[in-house]
Simulated assay, not measured.
Amino acid sequence: MPVSQRDSDLEPTNHQRIVDGEVISHAAEDYLKCILKIGDREAVPNQKIADALDVKPASVTKMIKKLESMKLVENQPYYGTRLTPTGHLIAVEILRHHRLIETFLHKIMGLPWDQVHEEAERWEHVLSEAVESKMDAMLGFPSHDPHGDPIPTADLEMRGQRYPSLDKTHVGEGVMTIAAVSDADGEFLRQCADWGVRPGVRIDVVDRSPSSVTIELPNNGRRLELHQELAASIFVKEGI
């Protein structure tokens, strides 16, 4: 199946996706999206999936076996789990829904960027293609969500590139711009908003230690020392 094309067999029916006559649960869709976000088309260790979804490894093993039986993933010994073309297609569609919904809630409904993620987690599974198309047009066909993450195209193609996280940068690398901020922690997003840390903002890495990264924001003069865990949630690109 061409990954760039939607398949009518995968269209939601009464808010359910069906593959070869079998319903894909919302929990299964969450696993597919998780694997996509971590590895795209590469194999992802099951422990990373467990950590990302905050579930027990045994639960991951059980779900992976289920997804394998549906031919949505392939488990590669010693490497982890990768999406099949069909699994990848479904995961990209769910991710597109999620990021479009976040953008709609933020830009049209006025919700703060720290409140849209949880709502999108619920809506992403039930959004019809008709509403998705209308939402996309109403927003002016956005390329990125409020947190800076690229929105997959209507043809279900991933776009954009993966940027390094701030904790992987070094002092003296030159001018950098925030590309994206993880939407996983609402409290952190609220703090970032207070600091002025948002996609598109220029930063300079001025110091680092084994446990933290210190940055300056030339636009407001702030100097912030971020713990490595927080720095890992901010993604940057070179230049302005």
Results as ranks from 00 to 15, higher is better:
134 K>M: 10
172 G>C: 03
38 I>Y: 00
74 E>G: 00
68 E>K: 13
170 H>N: 00
232 A>V: 11
14 N>I: 13
193 A>R: 08
54 D>Y: 11
98 H>N: 07
74 E>A: 06
26 H>N: 09
131 V>E: 08
129 E>H: 09
37 K>I: 10
216 E>D: 12
168 K>R: 13
170 H>M: 00
159 R>E: 09
40 D>H: 13
203 I>G: 11
235 F>Q: 02
75 N>D: 12
207 D>E: 13
233 S>N: 13
137 A>K: 13
144 H>Y: 12
86 T>D: 11
71 K>I: 08
145 D>A: 13
194 D>S: 06
73 V>N: 05
56 K>Y: 02
67 L>P: 00
126 V>C: 03
113 W>N: 12
178 I>F: 05
55 V>F: 02
118 E>K: 11
148 G>K: 08
91 A>F: 08
86 T>L: 14
42 E>F: 10
67 L>Q: 04
128 S>D: 10
95 L>I: 07
197 V>F: 04
65 K>A: 14
63 M>K: 15
118 E>N: 08
97 H>W: 06
230 L>I: 15
152 P>R: 01
67 L>W: 05
156 L>A: 04
161 Q>D: 10
44 V>W: 02
131 V>P: 00
125 H>A: 04
37 K>T: 11
232 A>L: 12
128 S>C: 03
125 H>D: 02
128 S>F: 03
221 G>P: 01
58 A>G: 04
104 F>D: 00
167 D>I: 07
115 Q>W: 09
81 T>N: 10
62 K>H: 14
132 E>S: 06
182 S>L: 10
4 S>D: 13
104 F>A: 01
41 R>F: 06
25 S>W: 00
38 I>L: 12
84 T>K: 03
232 A>C: 12
147 H>Y: 07
6 R>W: 12
184 A>D: 08
234 I>R: 01
61 T>W: 09
70 M>Q: 14
217 L>M: 15
87 G>I: 13
27 A>W: 06
151 I>Q: 02
36 L>V: 13
237 K>T: 14
154 A>Y: 00
225 E>F: 01
132 E>K: 05
17 R>Q: 07
150 P>L: 03
149 D>T: 08
18 I>S: 04
136 D>K: 09
66 K>G: 05
25 S>I: 04
34 C>G: 04
19 V>A: 10
68 E>P: 04
103 T>H: 11
18 I>N: 05
59 S>G: 03
124 E>W: 01
68 E>R: 13
42 E>T: 15
96 R>W: 00
175 V>Q: 13
51 D>P: 00
49 I>Q: 12
133 S>V: 12
224 L>V: 11
229 E>M: 10
112 P>L: 05
92 V>W: 05
17 R>C: 02
111 L>F: 13
3 V>L: 08
157 E>D: 10
151 I>D: 06
110 G>F: 02
29 E>D: 01
172 G>H: 01
112 P>Y: 03
89 L>M: 11
225 E>M: 14
42 E>Y: 08
37 K>G: 06
